[in-house]
Design a protein around this nucleic acid. Structure first.
Lengths: 359, 359
DNA sequence: CGCACTTGGTTAATCGTTTAATCACGTCAT
DNA sequence: ATGACGTGATTAAACGATTAACCAAGTGCG
């Protein structure tokens, strides 16, 4: 608390104004009964002296740290910047700080990281789960941000509907033969996205799905996804569950001489930073992280700041409360389709266009 | 401090063992004089009762929060996940937590974010500066992680040498006509990288440099970087200051029908998550963030934990100490060249190869 | 006029940890 | 034997903010 060692405390303000420190506290917090002009005078001298409240003192007395923990299991997630920023903004607007914890995807490290956050006295946890994440018994409220189909999910983008929008868009362009590209078959998010894609398909369409991880497990040293085979068999639209995989698809097709979108349309998900600047710019689905963060943080803080006498929802084990995830009014935030240059009208698979005819 | 409300405190341990709370404190911290067997007994009962120390109580008494602030001005930085993870690991190994602050690239928001961190009582700050970042007067030590040529830099990768490695690699492959692609001419990091690239060039080479931001300012709605003109004029190697821009270059060339690396080699910087999975996989330069983070955090913590009576390096202004950046023993961490598929032997520019001849 | 009530403020205890000051008690040297 | 000293533990005072309990004085009303 370097700042506090230097700056003045309430007692000094009290002395300067000529009142008790309790009155200063009441005036600044607006809680007790203090006359208006005295409040004014206290505020003024506090500002003049450059008073900054000591978080430690307040935390000790109130039992709350005004800090939330952000748990990111999969650090390599390219969405992390967006998530972290949105959470930090939402939290700091509500007067909370954000302590980060991540653990190279490892589950035990993960548990330790959460324990560290708890020991640091966070008032709540925002958890972005990935495969295998299990939140054990923690003694503070938890907001889970994943996908609506995840049990205990607090809020998230509507991945299912986002997937549906993608295939509707592609069908409107005339596409009838789809290839869906996923990475990890165990991921709830990816399953929701592909589920939505499939659900919006008309009856006159064909589709296949490939999972990159499965392919890699079978042949660990492969670099190609074997997309050409699918293109030759008539696929005209390839929809990936992430921009990262869409990029992989795009570059593989381009290297093989396939024109995008003239011969094959490619779409992604997440609107990552590179999506608008690659050639052709990537049609994708954007998630409103700001809104998701606001909802998650709001739900969490409501739970934190609601005075609890005895909460029947919390089971006690060894005297400590076990994990309880909070729920929000809105749990689905709609995603926004970003139509760019990588998706275009379907060509008839029967009459493949000569190379570069259109461009 | 949800955890502390539930769990036992030192007084309860003291009561259980039959000693004073001061003895418990001494036993657990190993500081005072306590007999060995008593230490053992206290440790045991503390563990048995599930004691976890209250950070608030400790912070209040010691004046230190054991929390560091991580300041990321440019949140869209795709390197952020790596940075955040490395910092968190290094900090938590040293017993510190990491509080994040970012500010949509805005300088005033940035200042507020730093102020919030200070008010939360962080013991130190790690700052990753970007254009325009100025650290005003802060009352705690600051570690600056940018590039060696930045004044006040604490530690960073050796961007200059990384750039040199790139051009040496390309020259070894026979390239003699280079195009360097930067984004922001005001960036120290980018200037160092391009500076290193140029410095390693032999006298028999030609090179030009383009800046994306400058191009965009001139024609805000342009999508192409006009690379074809350069290729036609004989450029065989295009080196970008970031994988993001290398990706832009790569896809633009591919769309135009240029084969990479058969006709033109492309290199990036940073080894971002997509670098290994695009086709062709991207030759780039990897920075050892883990090591950088360790050095930065170590320097910061040394400064924090060194007892200071009067520090002559700190000037005082209005009673508050002004910013003082710490310095580390090692300030340059070497970068590692990652040779992948996007760079290959140069073809003679005089005899352009027919499309697709090689592949 | 006196009682209840409101307003505006103070006192003092409290959160949990650390640490300087102190103390009790053997031991050792003189 | 006694003063000096080392050892092992205790006491009590902080750190800074919050808040329940209390009090003084003014106001309204029967």
């Amino acid at each position: 608390m370097a700042a506090s060692r230097i700056g003045p405390n309430m007692t000094q303000i009290a002395k300067a104004v000529g009142v008790s420190s309790a009155t200063v506290s009441n005036a600044l917090s607006g809680k007790g009964r203090v006359s208006a002009d005295l409040v004014e005078k206290i505020r003024a001298t506090a500002a003049e002296l450059g008073y900054v409240p000591s978080n430690a003192g307040r935390a000790l007395r109130t039992g709350r740290s005004n800090v939330l923990g952000l748990v990111l299991p999969d650090i390599s997630n390219p969405l992390f910047p967006q998530i972290a920023q949105a959470m930090e903004v939402a939290a700091s607007n509500a007067g909370y700080g954000v302590l980060i914890a991540d653990s190279r995807g490892d589950v035990t490290t993960q548990t330790q990281a959460i324990a560290r956050l708890i020991e640091r006295g966070v008032d709540g946890l925002v958890v972005i789960p990935r495969r295998g994440t299990r939140i054990g018994s923690v003694s503070c409220p938890v907001a889970m941000v994943d996908t609506p189909s995840t049990p205990g999910n607090t809020v998230s983008a509507d991945h299912w509907e986002g997937g549906a929008e993608i295939t509707r868009h592609l069908q409107d362009l005339g596409h009838r033969n789809f290839l869906f590209v996923g990475h990890d078959q165990a991921s709830n998010v990816q399953n929701d996205r592909i589920g939505g894609m499939k659900a919006a398909l008309g009856s006159d369409t064909r589709h296949q799905t490939i999972w990159i991880e499965t392919l890699l497990n079978a042949q660990p040293d492969r670099t190609s996804l074997g997309l050409m085979d699918h293109v030759k068999s008539g696929v005209t639209a390839i929809a990936a569950v992430s921009d990262l995989h869409a990029l992989r698809v795009l570059t593989e097709l381009q290297t093989a001489g396939i024109k995008v979108p003239q011969q094959v349309s490619v779409t992604g998900f997440d609107d990552l930073v590179f999506a608008p600047v690659v050639t052709p710019s990537l049609t994708t689905v954007h998630m409103n992280m700001t809104q998701i963060a606001q909802i998650a943080i709001a739900a969490l803080i409501t739970e934190i700041e609601t005075p609890r006498t005895i909460d029947p929802n919390i089971e006690h084990k060894n005297g400590a409360a076990v994990s309880h995830t909070v729920k929000a009014d809105t749990s689905k935030v709609s995603m926004e389709l970003m139509v760019r240059a990588s998706s275009g009208p379907a060509v008839s698979p029967a009459t493949p266009s000569p190379n570069g005819e259109i461009l």
